[in-house]
Structures are given as structure tokens and as C-alpha cells.
Design a protein around this nucleic acid. Structure first.
Lengths: 149, 149
DNA sequence: GTATTATAGGTCAAAGAAGGTCAAATTTCA
DNA sequence: TGAAATTTGACCTTCTTTGACCTATAATAC
């Protein structure tokens, strides 16, 4: 078992103890496992991604922290399914279809759908380089749905 | 929790006790928390800014004081006001402050705030070129708030 | 009444303390 | 062996703490 797995196990244990929430400092983990701090970011990116049902929040500077929340306990949630199936990029029409479906079947509220649609609209993403827009749209959609689980 | 957070909590408690108003001397706070006086200014600037819905008044010299008041958004539709006052770019901390203020004064729902925060989070905008992120954040925020008017 | 002094608070920049990003080097595994 | 996963390190950004120096107001002394 490599260091990344150990770190992941450690975080998982903390989440378990604490009912799906954990807070720690990056430096603390790095010291504990005698690795460079950025390895913690690697673990977060590869094992605690939105696709896996985790929400990660952090703050820099003195008193900085990293906070993780486990958001889906099972794969049964259709929002989780959507988050997984979106992939790295998505066009506006698909977003509209997905949101419309989710609202129709009452997995999210109409109001939520409207807001996410606004956030991923061409108007909102006009500033982004054209070739990056679909990727941004996908990331925004996933982050939003994650908060609604 | 760092010193700044403690000071902020202290002031918040005073505001709560006193129905949205608090008065104290800068030196008094500095002594209480064993910090330099200017740290109090730092806390005021970062946690009790107008964006967050506070008005700060002060006087120097003998009998000097600092007075804080929680100020309620009013006069026309505050959403429109925010939309107009957000320029072409905005950082994450300011978005957080604005949304928390709007939710606090019930011009938007908590759920809306959470969603917009997710849509404008660093995680959501990681795909965008760094120099474009603040501009995108501003555009997304405005598009979202427009739908809530 | 004005000038002086003491008592506040204000500003700003440097130093310190986290966390973030990215890509090269290395290891693992199919 | 070649692709994928992991490890490592150089460099970046954000937030906090500290201190030197500045300005305004009140109290006091002429």
C-alpha cells in the first residue's frame, strides 16, 4: 500500500468517526506521513473528487484548513449518477435536458434548475475562451448538483 | 481558530447582545486579545465590511471609539443594486460576503446562496485560465442574481 | 482663547503561515 | 514494455500577524 492509499485510509477513518465530515491541516498530514504537502492534494483530487461524492473546502493562510464532507452514501442517488455521467465537458442543450429531467422528476427544485441554468448559460461563460466553455459548464454543473445531494 | 477569528466572534457576540449595534475601543480589544491594535482594523476590514452588511464608524482622540452597526439592505431592490455594483471581476471572498449578506437579510434563500457559491467556487472555475476566473465569477454571479429578481 | 500635550484611532508594507498548481521523475501494473 | 498512477519539488496565491509611522480629537496649560 503506497503513501497515497495510507493518506486516503486515514482521511476515510476520520470521516467515519465523524459522521461524514473531517477537518485537518495539509501540513499535519504531510508530516504524519512524511511526504510533501502536495501529495495531499493529489489524494484529494484522485480519491475525494465530486464524482466520488465528496465536497472539499479549504482556506489558506494562518489557521488554514482542509475540510471534507461525504455527500453520497450510496450510488442510488440519481444526482450522483448524473454527476458521474456528465464527463469533462457538456453543451448548453444537454444541461438544459438534464436539469429539466431532474426537475420534472422532482430530484431538484425548479428554482434550482433555473439557477444552475443561469450559471452555465452562454451569457455567464462568455468571458471564457470558447474551447474551455463546455469544460467549465461541466464543472459548474457538477459542483452545483453536489450541493443539492 | 486564529486571533482574527476570535476577535470577530467577540464582536459578533456583542452585536447579537445589543441588537445589531456594538461599541468598543480599539485598545480594549487589543489588550483583551493580546494583539497589536491594527489587527482590530484588519478584522473590521475583512469581516465587517459594507459588503457583509456592516457600517463602521469611529472617532480618534481621548474617548475615541469604534461603533459597528448591522445595516439592513433597503431602498429599491437590493439584488439589482448588487448586480449593478459588482464590476467586471470579483474574488471568492467578496462573493461569499455578498451572498451571506443577501441570505441573512432574506433577499435570497440560503439554498440559492449555497448554489451560487458552488457555481462560483474555485473548484468550479479551476478549468478557466487563472486571469479570467474573477471575470467569470462576476458574470456567473450576475446571471444567477438576475434570475432571482 | 490659543498652543501644547496626551490619547486615541488609521495606514501600509513586510514577514510569516498556510494551502494550490504544475510538470518532471519515478514506480506500478496490465 | 508502455500506459497509468504515484511521488517529488520548485514556484505561486491567499490570509494573518506585526510594527513603524501618521492623523484626529480632547484635555490642559498658558
Amino acid at each position: 500500500m503506497g503513501v497515497s492509499d495510507s493518506i486516503a485510509a486515514y482521511i476515510l477513518a476520520k470521516l467515519y468517526e465523524n459522521e461524514g465530515a473531517a477537518e485537518f491541516s495539509r501540513g499535519e498530514i504531510a508530516r504524519t506521513f512524511a511526504c510533501v504537502p502536495s501529495q495531499v492534494n493529489y489524494v484529494l483530487a484522485t480519491r475525494f473528487s465530486p464524482e466520488r461524492g465528496y465536497e472539499v473546502e479549504s482556506r489558506r493562510g494562518g489557521g488554514g484548513f482542509i475540510r471534507i464532507r461525504r455527500v453520497s452514501l450510496s450510488g442510488g442517488n440519481p444526482l450522483m449518477h448524473v454527476i458521474n455521467s456528465v464527463g469533462g465537458a457538456i453543451d448548453p442543450a444537454s444541461v438544459r435536458a438534464i436539469l429539466s429531467n431532474l426537475a420534472e422528476s422532482e430530484w431538484i427544485k425548479r428554482r434550482d434548475a433555473v439557477l444552475i441554468l443561469a450559471a452555465t448559460s452562454p451569457a455567464a461563460l462568455a468571458e471564457a475562451p470558447p474551447e474551455k466553455r463546455d469544460a467549465l459548464r461541466a464543472a459548474i454543473l457538477k459542483q452545483c448538483l453536489l450541493r443539492l445531494i
